[in-house]
Every structure is written in C-alpha cells, then in structure tokens.
Design a protein around this nucleic acid. Structure first.
Length: 597
RNA sequence: GCGUCUGUAGCUCAGUUGGAUAGAGCAUCGGAUUUCGAAUCCGACGGUCGCAGGUUCGAGUCCUGCCAGGCGCACCA
C-alpha cells in the first residue's frame, strides 16, 4: 500500500521505544525527520537525545538499544548510529519498489489521491476568501485571498473534509446609496428591465457617482435617502441595488471563471442584515456589551489603543448603525449554528490581524464556539511591485485584477510564439496556443503567489514567474507535458498501463525519483495540517527536478526503448505515476495541467 | 507609545516548527546534445543567517534587549 513513510517509521519506533523503555515512556512523532543531507540517509530518528534526559541514560546507548530492536527490515538498510545519537535510516530499493507498485490505477474523479487514505475525523470547514467590494472592480489585493483560499479548500477536500467557500462580498453600506442614485440617473430602465443593465467599467462608474455626490447637494440628499430606503426595505430601491450587485458579481465571476474558482458561494454582508440586531442583543443579554461614548462596545482583555486605554470592539455605532464587527459576529454565529462548521478559516491579509484577534476573543468569550472549534486567520503578506513598493499602475492607481491576468496570458503567449519560431517540429494550432498561453499565464500568476511563504510580502515579477527555469509554473507544466508526450510519441497510453506490472528500482536516477514520489503522502499530510501551499510547490519542484535527471540523456535511464520489457514497463509506470503526482499536486494548488506546450 | 510582521549569497526567495558541514533559482564562469521533448542536465563561484546577550548536548529557528523597515491601533470595511 502507498503510505506515509514517516508515519510508518513513527509507528515502528514507537513500539520499539515502548518495548525497550516501558509503556509510559514519552514518544513524539516529530522525532522522525527527513534528512536534509542525503549522506546521512533518507530519514533520521532523533529521539535518543531527548530520551537521554528523561531516562537518565547516555544517548548513544539508547540509540544502540533501539537500533537492535526496531523492526525495519522491510523498510531500511541496517541503521547507523551517528554523531551524538542520531539513527540514520536508508530506504531499501525493495521498499521503494513495493510502495510504488502498490499505487492503484488513476481515479476518474476530481481528485487523484494515488490510493492515499486519510483517517482523520471529517470536519465541516468554512473558508472565508476573496471577498471583494462590489462597489468597485476587483484589484490585485484580492488575488492572494482568492488563490490561497482556493488551494487551501482543495487541500482540505483532498483529505476528506467538507468545505464551504464563502465570498463575503461588500454589498452593503452608505456608498451604495450613491451608486444606486447614480444608476437611476444614468440607466432609468434598470427597474423595468434589470437584465438590461451593463456597466463596462465599475471603477469609472464609481468615480462618476462620487463626482455627482460631491458636486451636487441635491444628488447627495437623494443618495442619503436611498440609503434609508435600502435599510428600510423599500422594494424599488432594493431592486435597483440588487441589479447593481448582480452586475458587479458578473464582473467578479468572469475573473473567477478565468481563475478556475467554481465552488465559491456569494454571501455578502447584506445576507446578515436581519441577524445583526439579534446577534448584538444576545451578546448584550450575556452581559458582554457596554456603552462607551454613545457606542455599544465589547471590551476584551489585552487590547489597548494608542493612548494605552482599553480598546473596544464597537458592535454598534453611536448613531445606531451596525458596523463590520457586528457583521462578522453575525457571520460567525451563522456559520457555527446554521452551517454547523467545526473550523473557520479566514483568508485575509495581515493588516486585519488585530480585528480577527478581537473577533475570535469575543467569540470565545461568548461561548458560541465549542472548545474544539478552530478559529483561524490565515494571514498573508502583500503583493509588491518589482521595486518592492506597493503594487500600483504607472499612474499610481490600483491595478485591476482583470488587466493583470490578461497581461500574464499575453506574456505567456509571446513566450510561446518565440519558442515556436525556434522549433518547427512541434507546430501548434492557434487554438492550442491559446489554451497553452491561458494555462501558463494564469498558472504562473497563481504559482508565484503560492510558492512564497504566506506571511511575507513578495514581489510580483512577471518575467521571473514566466521563466522556464527555477521554481515556476512553466517548469512544472513543462515537466508534466514532457512526460505525457513520452506516451504519445511511443504510441503508449500511459493511463492504460497494467497497474499490477511490478516497478523495480535499481538505477541511481530511479532511486532518486522513487524517493521523491514516496514523499508525497507525508508532504500532503503536512500541508493538510499546516495549510502552507509553498511546502507543496517546493515539493513539486524537487519532484520535477528528480524526473528531469531520471530522463536526462547523460545521467538518466532509457525509457521507451529500455530492455527487457519488464524494465521498460517499470519505467513507463514510473513516468505515469510521476505525471499523476505532479498533476494531483498542481490541482491542489488550483493549477490546470496541459498535455503539451 | 502599544501590538504585529519582516531582516538569510550581488538579486529574488526557501529553510520540514530545536538537529549533523544553512539550501534553490537568477546573475557570472565552465561543461554536456550524431535529439525516447536541451523549455533540459552537470559543475564552479558566492554567507559574521540585522546586532548583542541568554536558554541546552545542539539555535537561522525559542527567550530578552537593541537597530532598521512595513502594517495596524474608537464608531470606514
């Protein structure tokens, strides 16, 4: 069975430790680690050193005892004791061969799990992601939340969890009075025929509305009145508002379609409108709310403002209106009670850290969430320009996401056209070129975003992310397309190889590749736990490099013309499994593969 | 002022939650192709891990204090 080698080793060492030093002897799975230097082996057991203290023995003696009794004959060469008491583990070729041979044929479902099983308890997870403001066009600031949110959602689904992606769009508030009023003036037909509404550029529309608001007292009055009507539930006003939101959402979904985001549930702030008062009332009844300067506030320990005074979370403004804290509280309440979520993940930038710390503290205080419910702010850093400064257009404005994606696809297209000129053997049709440049351009943007650690800011560098060298989407997509072409060229259907044909691992290049493939389960387990997509990009890069060496003219092995037939079949299966692993990994990042490029 | 994030090779970034001699890519220099996809592979060069203490068998990683930069701190969301 294709299983997690690290977990397997952990189980073996746990029994060895317990049988040698007693059933209550401490054990930590973290004691098993992959070696960072291949000269020490593949994995190492570091437990002898921490055990030395609690057992009052010498670390090397402990290591020797364990080396003598741990059952690893089916996994590792004889253990070596090194340094102060490390136990070095070297996977045998037989173990690698068996592990890979046991991988079942590909699944036809959305996820190819390569036969992996996950035994965790299934959770209902709500991932709060993307969440643009409907008053304006989506801009680059929404990219990370959308891309990271999608990847994290897929990873959790892969492990068997139920995931609901929620788009907490900004569709409520005073600015909508202004927009509705302007819409009535410019497109009066919107009430009789809401489907006729078409706004080419939301940004320009917003600017025009703002100009009218600032320039005319009469307009401003009507706008303020529209807000009152909206909140009062006036049907005609609501109809105009709904038409505007629908139009804005169409703009968003054009982008989501291009990004391959398909299961995103639009549930904006307005959705919680009638739950705001009951939510605040419930907290008031619980004695958590007090009035300060006319505003209704929740005071939490450890939060101070710039004067050192206690910093409240304002749930109701002094004018009686509710603000975003109230909305967020109502949203949490809804997700816990109505959706039955056991884990809430907010994919929102670092600047909101304090807000979420306060929100979560308030929720804990309210007792709405069971202790086992995880409340997480998956905070990410900003996307910066190539110069390390905030990402802006030349004129200093915000960069529209639509334009950024189009630019990336165009740049990918240019690169493909250039390559085509150098290589007449592989001519591509116009539609193939379009498909490829779309996949490469969009994939490059996503991959660049996900390959950086979440918390740090990163520089957006189109040239770097579209490079075919280094840890980039094009390199990965190329590795995949090249493997797929091996089958095509040799007239072999890689997907139809017999899944019981044995894989034998002998050559150094095979060993290196096999070791990378067998790490897949443990990498997946780690990112299911940590939600760190860049761990996966790093892994896929290493895997792709291992394949390139495996297939290299000088350092690698022959594949399609290898002899005897059993070797050829074994290597073809290795190719197939590598391709599936890359495809599966890229899928978890939200990136589509292409069959040729 | 308080909080928070960041500081690693010339540049862009990793660093598996405390493990052995800190790694990639780019750039620079050198090598491999009578093509199973060279959009590739191999090698060389390059480091006081911001600074100073501390914790311990062991610190880029943990604690404290500095230095530098980003962001957030009462009715916008």
């Amino acid at each position: 069975m294709f299983s997690n080698t690290m977990k397997l080793l952990g189980d073996r060492f746990r029994s060895a430790v317990r049988s040698s030093f007693g059933d209550d002897c401490p054990f930590d799975d973290q004691w098993i680690k992959p070696c960072n230097d291949p000269r020490f082996g593949d994995y190492q057991f570091n437990g002898a050193l921490p055990l030395a203290k609690s057992l009052q023995k010498k670390p090397r003696d402990i290591a020797e005892t364990l080396a003598g009794c741990v059952e690893l004959a089916d996994i590792s060469a004889p253990l070596e004791i090194a340094g102060p008491g490390f136990l070095n583990i070297r996977l045998t070729n037989a173990y690698l061969s068996n592990a890979l041979t046991s991988i079942p044929a590909g699944e036809t479902s959305e996820y190819d799990r390569l036969g992996l099983q996950f035994d965790e308890a299934v959770e209902t997870v709500v991932v709060d992601m993307s969440s643009p403001n409907l008053a304006k066009e989506m801009h680059v600031g929404h990219l990370r939340s959308t891309v990271i949110g999608e990847s994290v959602s897929r990873i959790l689904e892969f492990a068997g969890h139920t995931v609901e992606r929620v788009n907490h769009v900004g569709d409520w508030g005073t600015q909508f009075g202004m927009l509705i009023t302007h819409l009535r003036d410019v497109q009066p037909d919107v009430i009789s025929d809401p489907d006729s509404l078409a706004i080419g550029d939301l940004e320009a529309f917003y600017v025009a509305a703002k100009k009218a608001f600032d320039g005319s007292e009469e307009f401003a009055n009507r706008a303020r009145q529209a807000v009152v009507q909206l909140q009062g539930g006036d049907e005609e006003t609501l109809a105009v508002w709904r038409a505007f939101c629908d139009e804005s959402l169409r703009h968003c979904h054009a982008i989501y379609d291009r990004l391959g985001i398909t299961k995103l549930e639009d549930r904006g702030e307005s959705f919680y409108n009638d739950q705001l008062a009951p939510t605040v009332q419930e907290l008031t009844d619980a004695g958590m709310v007090e009035t300060s300067d006319g505003a209704e506030c929740i005071f939490l320990d450890d939060f101070k403002n710039r004067d050192g005074e206690p910093l409240p979370m304002i749930v109701r403004k002094s004018d009686g209106g509710f603000n975003y804290s109230a909305t967020d509280l109502a949203a949490v309440r809804h997700r816990l009670r109505d959706i039955g979520a056991t884990r809430l993940i907010y994919v929102v930038g670092i600047p909101q850290q304090q807000h979420f710390a306060m929100l979560f503290a308030a929720i804990r205080k309210s007792g709405w969430a069971a202790d086992s419910v995880r409340l997480e702010h998956l905070a990410f850093g900003s996307m910066l320009g190539r110069d390390g400064k905030p990402f802006k257009t030349r004129e200093g404005g915000t960069v529209k996401l639509k334009n950024l994606l189009e630019e990336a696809v165009q740049a990918a297209r240019a690169a493909i056209d250039q390559r085509q000129g150098d290589d007449d053997d592989r001519s591509l049709s116009e539609s193939q070129k379009q498909t490829i440049s779309e996949a490469v351009g969009i994939g490059a943007v996503k991959y660049a975003d996900l390959s950086h650690s979440l918390t740090t800011d990163y520089r957006f560098d189109m040239e770097q992310m579209l490079s075919f060298e280094g840890n980039t989407a094009p390199y990965m997509l190329y590795a995949y397309a090249r493997i797929r072409s091996i089958g095509r060229k040799a007239d072999i259907d890689l997907d139809a190889l017999p899944s019981d044909a044995p894989i034998t691992i002998e050559h150094d290049a095979e060993i290196a590749l096999a070791k990378m493939i067998t790490r897949f389960p443990e990498v997946i387990s780690q990112i299911v736990r940590d939600l760190r997509p860049n761990v996966l990009t790093e892994y896929l890069y290493e895997l792709s490099k291992a394949f390139s060496r495996f297939y290299d003219r000088r350092h690698g092995v022959r594949v399609t013309d290898a002899e005897p037939e059993s070797t050829r079949m074994s290597r073809l299966r290795l190719c197939q499994i590598t391709a599936r692993t890359i495809k599966s990994g890229l899928y978890l990042l939200g990136i589509d593969t292409i069959e040729q490029m």
